[in-house]
Design a protein around this nucleic acid. Structure first.
Lengths: 151, 151
DNA sequence: GAAGATTGAGGCTTCAATCTTA
DNA sequence: TAAGATTGAAGCCTCAATCTTC
């Protein structure tokens, strides 16, 4: 039956296209995580947490704001922050207007670590990402990903 | 110093571009994993394992071939296979030419589960992926991702 | 009651050591 | 000696229940 055959081919192409996105992201993440662990001693998740805090508007995020950005549950966010606080990279402080909320901020040590990690990460991005694409392709990719991400 | 300023702007754009790839993939994976868990009762990782085996040339893969495809360590691959065997979806068999290797194959139950899961996954791919892109954009994305993945 | 954060229990993964076979 | 697979210990995450505050 031609219609069914056509449909199956289309489905396979769709699965392949998404599979390629999955594989690409997984491979890049693995390379970047390995570099950060070997050269700076932190995971890619820790790096991203520090980066999100450094780029936050007010210099702090609620625990769950950070967790949502990293796609963690509330329990996972609490424990990630626990570990980063234990290592001295983050501090908790209280929100003056809502005492349910725990704010998280970078310590000077966390900022220093972030700067070191960024050097490594940018080098990796240039080697495994930017150098493989033209400027036009990079822009095409950014636009396509923006639409996919925002749904 | 202009040169340093320019360099920092470029680095930020690069971090943003990769961050967008990371966010997009993370969000899509989360949506697809949730659908598969809620409607079929398996994780996206289980689904991908079944899919890789169904698409393998000889109908089987070595434990570590499967693990490499999913970016798992050898111990992680062993235990993933353990769980899927316990559930009756996979079987181990011995490789006739190298007794160090454990082959993994789909059971009929595993094939049936894969078919059910594929219906759900294809629906999600159409809703959250294909419907957001033109055919031309899909092709651009596939080509860009191929180069990033293999590069 | 609902939202933010935390905690205990359990699941999945990595790391390192081990066993078997090549 | 090296490669494939497995196992014990430990890390990080989710889920569900709980506590505090709104």
């Amino acid at each position: 039956v031609p219609a069914e055959t056509d449909s199956r081919v289309t489905d396979d192409a769709l699965i392949d296209a998404y599979g390629r996105l999955l594989e690409t992201q997984r491979r890049l993440h693995h390379v970047f995580d390995r570099s950060l662990r070997d050269e700076v001693g932190i995971s890619a998740v820790w790096y991203e947490a520090l980066l999100r805090l450094a780029r936050s508007d007010a210099g702090h995020l609620a625990v769950n704001e950070l967790g949502n950005a990293l796609d963690l549950t509330s329990g996972g966010a609490t424990r990630l922050v626990d570990r980063l606080v234990d290592e001295g990279y983050l501090e908790r402080s209280s929100c003056p207007t809502d005492r349910r909320i725990a704010w998280v901020t970078l310590t000077p040590g966390g900022q220093k670590l972030l700067d070191e990690a960024t050097e490594v990460h940018v080098r990796d991005l240039e080697d495994h990402f930017a150098s493989l694409l033209t400027g036009e392709e990079m822009e095409q990719l950014r636009e396509i990903l923006r639409r996919l991400r925002d749904g």
